[in-house]
Design a protein around this nucleic acid. Structure first.
Lengths: 206, 206
DNA sequence: TGAGAGGTAGAACGATCGTTCTATCTTGTT
DNA sequence: AACAAGATAGAACGATCGTTCTACCTCTCA
């Protein structure tokens, strides 16, 4: 066999394509962004594109994979703080709020993608479903460890509230949504609100 | 002047176009549905299309106008029952749940449209913003009449929860989302839960 | 050093996008 | 019956869609 100029499955061209496409897909929607735009802004040619991705849809799935990995990493980081379970719930909620406020100002990448892919059997929708199921069960796990009264219902409610926060943050502005999000999220856990967090809810934070 | 074969601004062709496009836009997304599809399924030709709508985007805005009118009509119907304010809140929540369960199984038309129109100044996004603002203030009005403790916050929370219910109903299935929606919605009002409604939450309903 | 394979370049494919064209038909008024 | 004007028909526009083509370049290993 022959030369491997980069580790298997990666290359600078692939990285640039994925990073460029991720930004464009998120900001402008998927069907609105053509392959010409992507290869143009990534500084590569169409042939290079199709050497790394069998089709545009594979690139879309890779984009969702990046988003999925980012969120998993954020959870891992929160858990790595070693905070006690009850505190971890607060960290997670704060982290979700921070994420919506700073990074996901154009809504949820998965919800937005699903809006453009009506076929539930498509690869994109499968990726969306898999991500959402992981997210829900991860929340349930965190809530269960914190002795929440009904972790399953609370996790489902948190998913709801977080979905809404991303949508509302995009369409109505985060500053208008933040109070409702914080109030709903903490109440959804079914856990008593720690004083420090209660203070954060009403006055400081950003 | 000359013949007016139909009332100003309407015609059977226009009605068919709007009805057909509304169904297609909602089910399959906006950019995914071409003018060919629309005129084909509506049984008219392109020239007819462009005689009634200056461009495809005008048709999209008309589609959102229909959705907006439908929801306003539902509110009017609920208010026309003459139910006392406190009961009206329950009627509205039940109505929203019913709507998600039966009619809006592919998510929220406005949220989905916004996912495809990143430009906040576009006509589509303006229509989305106008609808959302009306919806929020309508909820606030209903909650205020029912003596909710904080109508403004409660309305914002209800919008959040309803957004999430539509998204979640689409992506996760309504039966999985319903309990979380009902619980979150009633708690968001800040009002005590009437016994009859509490019963409905835990057992009956559909 | 040259063989060989993966990466890159840029033109070009057919299909479909939203839009516009001219010609024909329908309809109420004169 | 003749006319004016809106509605309809169907071909056709240029632009862009996702995809594929052949030629060239740039490496590692024999």
């Amino acid at each position: 066999m022959a030369a491997r100029t980069t580790p298997a499955g990666t290359s600078v061209a692939r990285e640039r394509l994925l990073a460029t496409a991720s930004a464009l897909f998120y900001r402008e929607g998927i069907h609105s962004v053509g392959v010409d735009r992507i290869v143009g802004e990534a500084g590569v040619t169409r042939a290079t594109f199709y050497r790394h991705f069998p089709s545009k849809e594979d690139l879309v799935e890779a984009y969702l994979g990046v988003e999925d990995a980012n969120i998993r990493a954020a959870f891992d980081a929160a858990e790595a703080t070693g905070a006690p379970p009850r505190e971890l719930v607060g960290l997670v909620i704060d982290g979700l709020a921070e994420d919506v406020a700073r990074h996901h100002t154009r809504g949820c990448p998965f919800i937005n993608a699903a809006a453009e892919y009506p076929d539930a059997d498509s690869g994109v929708r499968r990726a969306v479903a898999a991500h959402r199921e992981w997210f829900r069960s991860e929340l349930e796990h965190v809530l269960d460890a914190a002795d929440a009264p009904d972790p399953r219902l609370a996790a489902a409610e948190l998913v709801l509230v977080r979905d809404a926060a991303m949508v509302g943050g995009y369409l109505d502005g985060w500053e208008r949504v933040r109070p409702a999000f914080v109030a709903s999220a903490h109440r959804a856990t079914g856990l008593p609100l720690p004083l420090a967090s209660a203070d954060a809810v009403s006055s400081r934070d950003g």
